[in-house]
């Protein structure tokens, strides 16, 4: 639990909008160690999204160093970034971003298609295992339209897991879900974290941040607070404490 998965050193990101320079990140530094469950919080305009894009290797910093699992991202080409995303990062999006009219299994298989070393049977095995891990083993052939929001998000999490990434990067992953389903997802996240997965969870809900063991607070492109959460709330208990819903 001491190896650094993420190392951010004085990360700056500036955008040139016409004649103006927008400084979205003004020198962000923090590390994330293996096995941590970090939430990144901040109101809109705080640079949260920009940071997420950088962490996800979708973007490169204007200045500063970002090391993902020991690799300096700043020096990589577009193709090398793509490879890095494929091998080291699992994305979970707010809007699930599943392929429509495509079975859960095929959706989960998607990242593996971009890994040429895998055979078709290996691909299927891994995808089935990932879906089992999110408790959707009985929904392999269902298309997104046949799944509930929570189930769709679980498929998305399975897709993020399938490549055995060093980090799961979730962007407002509970934003489209009701409280109960959000807690279910968080419970799943906590389980994955217990199994050793490093999770970086971007959110603006303090409620959700309570389930993580560390919170990084951003404001105006700077880290304003970086606190370790001493008493992590258990999502499972939170779920049980909810009044029973009619539809369950």
């Amino acid at each position: 639990m001491n190896s650094k998965i993420l190392e951010l050193q004085q990360i700056k990101r500036e955008f040139i909008m016409g004649t103006e320079t927008v400084r979205a990140l003004k020198g962000v530094s923090f590390d994330v160690h293996a096995g941590e469950f970090v939430t990144i919080m901040g109101s809109s305009g705080s640079g949260k999204t920009t940071l997420l894009n950088l962490l996800g290797c979708l973007d490169k910093p204007t200045a500063g160093n970002y090391l993902l699992d020991g690799v300096d991202v700043g020096n990589l080409s577009r193709n090398e970034l793509a490879r890095l995303r494929n091998r080291k990062i699992g994305f979970v999006f707010q809007a699930y971003n599943l392929l429509p009219r495509t079975s859960a299994l095929e959706n989960v298989e998607l990242p593996l298609f971009y890994n040429p070393s895998l055979s078709a049977s290996e691909r299927k095995d891994k995808a089935v295992k990932a879906l089992e891990a999110v408790k959707l083993a009985d929904r392999l052939d269902h298309t997104p339209s046949q799944l509930s929001g929570g189930q769709q998000q679980r498929v998305a999490i399975a897709r993020a897991l399938v490549n055995q990434p060093v980090m799961i990067l979730a962007d407002e992953a509970t934003g489209n879900l009701d409280t109960r389903t959000s807690y279910e997802i968080m419970s799943l996240m906590q389980d994955l974290n217990k199994e050793g997965k490093t999770i970086v969870f971007v959110t603006h809900e303090p409620d959700i941040a309570a389930f993580s063991n560390r919170t990084v607070m951003l404001r105006d492109g700077k880290v304003v607070k970086d606190t370790v959460n001493e008493n992590v709330r258990s999502a499972k208990e939170a779920l049980e404490s909810l009044p029973p819903a009619d539809d369950y």
Binding site: R78, N79, A82, R85, N97, L99, Y114, R159, N163
Partner: peptide, 16 residues
């Protein structure tokens, strides 16, 4: 477009 974005985020290169 979103599908393309998704594919890229899970590791598809431009050439893919």
């Amino acid at each position: 477009t979103r599908e393309i974005g998704l594919r890229m985020s899970v590791g598809a290169r431009g050439v893919d």
